[in-house]
């Protein structure tokens, strides 16, 4: 499959909020209750198509524990998008998102696009962060907010695709050759494996 664009995206957030699970759910469609803790970053790829543009997302999934934080610049350097994840059942993890935004605004690529994901929405009963508060904050910093659950799959595709769209939009506004409509674009997702299979059976995407 021809790839028109390649975007680097980084997932950031406190330890154990489900960054790896979100990335795995998105790329592999799997959820593992016992995802191991990440010390080194994971690196995942997924090809998607937004309107007429086929995009390869390089997703860098980072370690969340505070003491690994100083390593993060290695991962968000040159990233075009950041998925900031918090756990809706953990207040502290939301404040971490706020501090990540501050750091990225200071240190990262100035055009970086943010999307905030309130994860573990399957645990709605234990919610500690009012959705309105999170949405208001996201609005304030010009980011989109998604309620996600890596377990049920809710909101997962949407939040990653939103990042891709935001990046495309920014590029088109800054006069890059990629054409992209500002209206809500239709997204066709193609998992790499799916693509391979289809090719085998002679189908066409």
């Amino acid at each position: 499959m021809e790839v028109d664009r390649e975007f680097k995206i980084v997932t950031l957030g406190e330890g154990r909020v489900g960054k790896t699970s979100l990335a795995m759910r998105y790329v592999r469609g799997q959820f593992n209750e016992k995802e191991q803790s990440t010390t080194n970053a994971n690196f995942l790829e997924k090809n998607i198509r937004i309107n007429e543009t086929s995009i390869k997302l390089n997703i860098w999934d980072t370690a969340g524990q505070e003491r690994f934080r100083a390593l993060a610049p290695n991962y968000y350097r040159e990233a075009k998008g950041a998925l900031l994840v918090y756990d809706i059942t953990d207040k502290e993890s939301f404040w971490k998102v706020v501090s990540w935004v501050e750091e990225l605004k200071m240190q990262a690529d100035k055009d970086i696009s943010f999307v905030i994901a309130g994860n573990k929405c399957d645990l709605e009963l234990d919610r500690q962060i009012p959705k309105e508060q999170a949405i208001a904050y996201a609005k304030q910093i010009g980011a989109a907010h998604y309620s996600t659950s890596a377990k049920s799959g809710m909101g997962v595709n949407e939040c990653f695709e939103e990042i891709a769209k935001l990046i495309l939009d920014k590029e088109s506004r800054s006069g890059s050759p990629i054409r992209s409509s500002k209206a809500r674009s239709r997204v066709i997702v193609k998992n790499q494996e799916e693509v391979v299979k289809k090719k085998k059976s002679g189908g066409c995407c």
């Binding site: 330890g15 154990r16 209750e33 016992k34 995802e35 191991q36 803790s37 524990q65 505070e66």
Partner: peptide, 21 residues
């Protein structure tokens, strides 16, 4: 409390179970 929570989540919820190795 941070250490307590860290250990709880990394060990007790299964994030160090054999299948994660």
């Amino acid at each position: 409390p941070d250490d307590e929570e860290g250990i709880r989540k990394d060990i007790m919820t299964g994030r160090t179970d054999p299948e994660t190795f």
